[in-house]
Amino acid sequence: MNCQEALNLLYEIIDKEASDIDAAQVREHLGNCRHCFEVYRLESAVNDLLTEKVKAAASPRSLDGVEAIRGKLLAQLDQIDTETRREPAPTNRKPFGNIAMTLGIAASLIVILGAAFVGRDLIRHREVFMPLEQAHWRVENNVEIPSDHSLTAERIRALADSIHLSLAQQVGEFTLVSGHVEELLGVRMGHFVYENEKQMISVFAAPAAQFNIPDDVRDNVVSSDGVQYFSHNCRGCRLLFVRDGEWVLVAATTDKNLDMTTFLRHHRVA
């Protein structure tokens, strides 16, 4: 090992992250090289002092602050516990405004994710399910989305069954390819993806008892067979909301020409 190699490993050694082999070779080099030995001695002394100072600089007042928020937090957890247990609130108010936003963003997010992957590899976008905020963060930061090969048609059906939602496997040219159930803000909701060869549609399903179609997504109303569909644009996605029995469904796509009204009319098995 020469000086450059020994110095390249400096911080890994100091942070105890180097392999045993590297550590042994560095130790041997330091035994023979006065210069590198001095650099190591100085850097680890500086490191120890810095660590100590950083910790000391962080400690005062911290505990007061934590005590104050611990109380607030526990109160808020009580409230969440109560919300989760309570029957849904009356529907003439908008108690779940945040869910509306979350749903809209979630639906558009998955479409954006899907669109990003369709061009490269049609298979990939079946594998992008993960907690939403994590997925969002990964997309914004160009971080590779890890794959999950365990998704299969049976598992998607099982997921849909677990929230008592019956879905058509096939809607026109579109096939159900992916599914995911998650709890957002205390409400269990389903999220399913359909695709044909070129397009994809993302569908969110939330219990109508807990979720209203909010006023601020009712940009346009389309009536079809006496049912009202509300459309809204969000982050380059077209969203269509409809109340279907005990479910509120949100379909999302980036495709400008796709007829989502027809899609939503057929995508549930009665």
Partner: peptide, 16 residues
């Protein structure tokens, strides 16, 4: 901000 950030973190952690 630090208090808000920790509070938000813990609430989110509880929900998830």
């Amino acid at each position: 901000d630090a208090e808000d950030l920790v509070q938000e973190t813990m609430v989110k952690a509880y929900r998830f």
